[in-house]
Computed example of a mutant assay.
Amino acid sequence: MDVKTAGVFSGKTAIVTGAGQGIGFEICRQLVQEGAAVLLNDVDEALANDASRKLQKIGKCIACPGDSSDLTFIRQLVARAVTDTGTLDVVIANAGITLFGDFLNYSPESFYRVMQVNLGGTFFLAQEAAKQLIKQGRGGSLVFTSSVTGHQAHKNLAAYGMSKAALEMLAKHLVVELSSFGINVNTVAPGATRTERTEADAEYVSTWSAITPMGRPATTADIASAVMFLISDKARHITGQTLVIDGGWTSVSPSPYEED
């Protein structure tokens, strides 16, 4: 007879931003499946509610629509985690936006919006969450979502790429600030990944399969599984690190292999 055992995150609560679909949603799915109570955030209210309803079929998931770059909302999000579940243990700052544009004509509006969401939202969510984790006195885990564009230059992504590189340095700095409280902070840097957004491009899979050493772009499960490791007890002595998940692309980028 099969006996269902408690998941490895039973009794823990996680906040995941930018989780209405794609990588964020898969992180939430894996967390809920492993017993965590999850606060699923997305700026799109319909997406957040729909995603949460799907996950409620397998565990506890609370829809928290709102702008994760807004400090008032961030404070409400952390407070709700504690009010609704009694604890906060894990925060995945996954929300981000990509606004393409060539450097010479990139607008201040686009620049500051990218920085507000990608940097400001992550920084202040980490700050607010860390205060709660310190108050609880049990440690915890923070994970930021960076990108291979923080390692390799891409045309028309100067602002986005610099914001992602900055997140990796933020994780390093927080080692100094938070390690003594038992809080580890790491970053994942996904490469090309199959999501609802990228699947809209008919050439996406074939293009990235051709130039990725492992022969395919990542799945959302590839990225989420790496996150699950970094927030697990198996990674308690890992902090300030960035895990690049790109099938080897950054080792050979940007050109595809050529025939000899």
Rank of each mutant, 00 (worst) to 15 (best):
V78T: 10
S141G: 09
L170N: 04
V117F: 08
L71D: 10
G101W: 03
Y204P: 12
T98Y: 13
C64V: 09
I211A: 10
V205Q: 07
S179A: 14
E196I: 13
R80F: 10
V32N: 11
V205R: 06
K12Y: 06
A159Y: 02
V90I: 15
G140V: 00
S110H: 12
P190V: 07
A226W: 00
D2F: 15
V176A: 12
R236Q: 13
S163Q: 02
G18A: 06
A130G: 04
H154S: 14
E45A: 15
D67H: 08
G191A: 07
D70S: 11
G248E: 03
V252F: 11
K234A: 14
N105A: 12
G150H: 01
S179Y: 05
N118L: 02
G35M: 10
E177Y: 01
D50A: 13
V43P: 04
G140A: 01
L243R: 02
Q76N: 15
L104I: 10
P254G: 08
Y204F: 15
S52I: 01
A192W: 03
S180K: 15
H237L: 13
A14L: 05
N156S: 14
L39E: 01
N94F: 02
S110P: 03
F25P: 03
G137K: 08
V43A: 11
S225A: 10
G11E: 07
T98C: 14
V143C: 07
P108K: 05
Q56F: 05
P256F: 00
G20M: 08
A63Q: 05
G86I: 04
T17Y: 02
D44L: 09
N184D: 08
L174P: 02
V175T: 03
K172T: 03
A36M: 06
V176N: 11
V82Y: 01
A166Y: 03
T98R: 09
N49L: 11
S52T: 09
V227R: 01
N41L: 02
M162W: 01
S225N: 13
A159I: 02
G215W: 11
P217M: 06
Q116L: 13
A48F: 02
M214Q: 14
E196M: 12
N49P: 04
A51V: 01
S225G: 13
S163K: 00
T239K: 03
L243N: 06
G150Y: 00
E34Q: 15
R197A: 15
S255G: 11
T5M: 15
E128H: 09
L71I: 14
V91I: 10
I245D: 05
K4I: 05
D89A: 05
F181S: 15
A165S: 12
H237T: 13
A192S: 15
G161I: 00
R53T: 10
